[in-house]
Structure formats: C-alpha cells, structure tokens
Simulated scan of single mutants.
Amino acid sequence: MIRTLDPAGDAEAVLDLYRRAADFLDLESGRTPDDAVVEEYFTDAPPGGDSTASLKLGLLEDGRLMGIVDLAFGYPSARDAYLGLMMFAREARGRGRGRAFLRHVEQAARNRGATRLLLAVLEANPRGRAFWESEGFGSPRVFPPARIGDRVHVRIRLHKSL
C-alpha cells in the first residue's frame, strides 16, 4: 500500500525506516538516523519550494514502512516534478518495489500536471544510477562536488519525460 505520510502520525515509522536504511544515509551524508533527519524529510523542499506542496509518500507492507518518497513540484521549472528521495529499507531492496513505487510517483506527477520528472543520483551510488537509467532516465547533467552533511559528492541530475 502506498499512502501520504504525516509528520505527526508517521515520524516514528520514518525514523524506524531510516534506521533500517542507515547504509544509504551514511553514504549520502555520514549522518546517523535521528529525529532531526526525520524532521528534514518532512520539511525539505527544493530551492524556492514549499514543503507543504510536496508529496511525502510511504510504501507499507504488513503495516510496516518499507520505503519513502519525497516528490516536489515546480522545480527546476513550472512543469517539472523533482524526486528528492526514494529510499528503501535494506530488507526491501532488490525485489521490484522500486519500479512499482516509481510507477506510482510518475502517475502522481502527471496528475499534478508535470511533464518531466527529475532527480539527482550520487556518483558514489552506481547501483542507484543503473536503476534510474534502466527506468528511462537520462540526459545526465553533472554538478561539481558539493557537501552533503559530512560527505562531498558529485551529483548527476537525470530526467525522464512523463
């Protein structure tokens, strides 16, 4: 089941998921899962964006949160949707959930009038990049190294027409 997440009712489940996906958080920022990471998930938005206009979605199985998405709208241009995060618990990876969740995200973006879906993948995450490219994302734009938490990353922005 996929549903919208609420900071008041779902913060503990999101924290539990971050703990089960701590390897990704470590790769991305060197941080450990805590309440501040959860708060950032619920309040993060692209530059000039509004977090309340974003979709914070959860993939649940047997009542347990297995994956999350952060989907923003109007960035970098008005008809764009930006997938800021799609993350799964370690035990949920490699079983087709990413593809199914992505289909839902694409439809949600289309429903809001988006004609293009964008995301950034870390150069340090070649498996992630391979997944996105296998799903039709392309036209890479490489950004100079930038700090994310305790890490410095080259980010590669990919997009897909909807």
Results as ranks from 00 to 15, higher is better:
96 G>R: 11
152 V>S: 08
8 A>F: 04
148 I>P: 00
40 E>F: 10
149 G>T: 04
156 I>P: 05
1 M>E: 12
145 P>Y: 13
124 A>W: 02
8 A>V: 12
71 L>M: 10
56 K>E: 04
97 R>N: 09
35 D>I: 05
139 S>E: 15
87 M>E: 10
104 H>Y: 14
146 A>L: 11
85 L>T: 05
51 S>I: 01
97 R>C: 05
14 V>C: 01
141 R>W: 08
85 L>C: 06
58 G>E: 09
90 R>E: 15
123 E>D: 15
144 P>R: 14
141 R>F: 10
102 L>K: 04
137 F>E: 06
22 A>N: 03
109 A>M: 11
72 A>T: 00
84 G>L: 09
112 R>G: 03
43 T>Q: 15
126 P>A: 11
160 K>R: 15
63 G>H: 14
9 G>I: 07
24 F>D: 08
56 K>M: 03
39 E>Q: 15
158 L>W: 08
105 V>S: 08
66 M>S: 09
19 R>Q: 14
140 P>K: 07
115 T>P: 01
68 I>P: 00
92 A>H: 11
17 L>A: 06
44 D>G: 02
150 D>I: 09
108 A>P: 04
12 E>C: 07
37 V>P: 00
49 G>V: 05
158 L>F: 13
109 A>E: 07
51 S>G: 04
135 E>W: 02
2 I>W: 02
52 T>D: 07
58 G>R: 07
61 E>N: 05
54 S>L: 06
137 F>N: 00
143 F>S: 14
137 F>V: 04
62 D>R: 13
130 A>L: 13
94 G>T: 10
118 L>G: 02
21 A>R: 01
106 E>G: 08
68 I>C: 12
119 L>R: 05
26 D>T: 12
